[in-house]
Design a protein around this nucleic acid. Structure first.
Lengths: 350, 350
DNA sequence: TTGTAGGCGTTATCAG
DNA sequence: CTGATAACGCCTACAA
């Protein structure tokens, strides 16, 4: 591989000059500039990022920590992250934490050693937020700490919307398969549920069961739930994957969706439209969340460089939590009885 | 961040000595060794990978190029890759090529600049194989070139198995929704299909339609196919995603799976079990493929270091194409009429 | 067994 | 405008 020195020799200038045209910093005569450029072309020269990083301390690389890329929720985020990273000249290192504290720590160690510029964290096994303050971090789809920029959806409102929709389609006994209590967004969705139903006469705390954010655990939980409470006619699942589990449990239990039990999920991952029946859900703007988080992180990284804090044009405020809008998506899994919401819509149109 | 020099000072030795204990290379007195180790601990010292890479020319980083991580086929591979990499101290850079030559080339450029140690390629937009010979590469789920180590499944045999299974369950007009002709594995599956049915009296080339490896295109293709050939009673889809598309088309067409049309996919991605009906498929050992590819790549990388070619214990032969076994998975989407295969199995057991 | 010194490829700081 | 030269943090002969 050709080095900057080779280029300098060929162009009969010093390495300093080559460096200057490389970064177009400082003055450099137009003629010598073209000479240098030609030399670079001739030698197929590309600067070594590594060598650069050695004095920069910046690598144009960010880490993306997710629990498990195999969970269909994360590829969509990952794709968004990668897209904007790529756009801004950054490269993304993928890390699967499995929500294990140890694994997560090891990753942070490695990422630090590699002089990674920052991390997008969509998994926080470590309950101690300080761990995440060692370098620029943006938290995605979780809440960890006020001091860390965060991107989430309006989970609580989503919970409300989901339950209201179930009520609208005529459900009168609505249960909630909630995600893990250690995960803030799961708790928020649960709050939305509670807010809406806790003063209903039929409500009982037993209508809430907890499970991991996956199909299997949700299926088990739903099975127990149905056994204990056969009167249930609506289920709000903590996310789409859990909704699939619920769907399976209901199916095995011999009831029908949506006729006997209506079901709504959360996230709007692509899986929702491959199911039969297609799954109603609360859509999070996944791609937007991923790309916003990445833009925040990159801004964070790049403004650390300018220590003068040139507040001239900070696109985003890094000291706040961005809560993005959610949206109710009605599909077959709640297409049931009189659909009040739809009727409202029709009235408006008439 | 503490540097090697800080450690040296604190331990009252030279940097060389510290370096030695770091890599336990060369001789170093036990006492001084412990002294150094303590100094390292005290300073929370971790060596800078960047600085190391500058003379090594190795970064302990590999690239993973996939068409689109959002396609549910790839997360499972990615996970395997990441697991093995992580185990061996490597880090994975994720690249989405969208099968665009330009994007792919840009990635290779960037990866080279970053002194990436090697690449796992699960997408080859570039038809010129030489592009991939600039650094250690292992091709996964594709075939590009004899000279590049490759890991694939027995696609052709899988095609045969799929079609035979459809015949076994009583299908007599079997169509094939084939993947893109530019993709070797898709072509191989098609060959398996052809091999099995081309001498059947009912066979017609019209029974093969091509589409992209995704739901939407497959749905369209299937719709046309059904319109032209309503007599079809079995479909072998080029992969599971395409099977979903076919499922949808059939559903919209008003026919039933598996009663009217049996359907089988390929890959055995997790989606197959969330569908109703669950999808029969030819299982590729995805995780195994990903991990084997990664082990091959790492071996490739590390044996480049030992220029003496210490053939003492080369686990794998890097000059061949690994074709991994596939397996027929029977589920509801082909549970139809008399299931000859199952009967055979029963006979054996009796 | 330990230390010195040069080099990996760039950038940044000074002089010219 | 351009050119030496010292970092950046580590490794590796080569000496001692």
């Amino acid at each position: 591989m050709a080095t900057i020195r080779d280029v300098a020799n060929l162009a009969k200038v010093s390495v300093a000059t080559v460096s200057r045209v490389l970064n177009d910093s400082g003055y450099v005569n137009n003629k010598t500039k073209t000479r240098v450029l030609e030399a670079m072309r001739e030698l197929h020269y590309t600067p070594s990022t590594i060598a650069r990083s050695l004095n920069n301390k910046r690598t144009k690389t960010i880490g993306l920590v997710v629990p498990d890329i195999t969970n269909p929720f994360f590829p969509e985020l990952a794709r968004a992250v990668e897209d904007v990273a790529q756009h801004d000249g950054y490269t993304v290192i993928l890390c699967n934490s499995d929500e294990h504290v140890e694994k997560e720590r090891r990753y942070f160690e490695v990422l630090k050693q590699k002089y990674i510029d920052g991390v997008i964290l969509a998994s926080n096994a470590d309950q101690n937020p300080d761990v995440y303050l060692q370098m620029p971090v943006v938290v995605l789809d979780r809440k960890v700490n006020e001091r860390i920029p965060t991107v989430v959806a309006k989970n609580r409102e989503g919970g409300r919307l989901a339950v209201q929709h179930l009520e609208d389609v005529g459900c009168t006994r609505i249960a909630h398969i909630a995600g893990p209590q250690r995960i803030k967004s799961a708790e928020d969705r649960k709050l939305g549920y509670l807010e809406t139903v806790s003063d209903q006469p039929w409500y009982s705390p037993d209508y809430i069961v907890h499970a991991e954010f996956d199909i299997k655990h949700s299926e088990e939980a739903t099975t127990e739930l149905l056994a204990a409470h056969p009167e249930i006619d609506g289920i709000f699942a903590g996310n789409d994957l859990m909704a699939v589990g619920a769907l399976k449990a209901i199916h095995r239990y011999g009831k029908k969706v949506p006729e006997d039990i209506a079901i709504i999920g959360f996230d709007n991952i692509s899986l929702t439209t491959t199911l039969v029946p297609e799954l109603s859900t609360i859509a999070q703007p996944l791609y937007e969340m991923g790309s916003l988080a990445t833009r925040l992180l990159i801004q964070h990284i790049e403004q650390r460089g300018n220590h003068e804090h040139t507040d001239q044009h900070l696109d985003h405020d890094l000291n706040r939590c961005y809560e993005l809008d959610i949206e109710l998506i009605v599909r077959a899994s709640t297409a049931r009885k009189k659909h009040v919401t739809q009727m409202k819509a029709l009235n408006i149109q008439e």
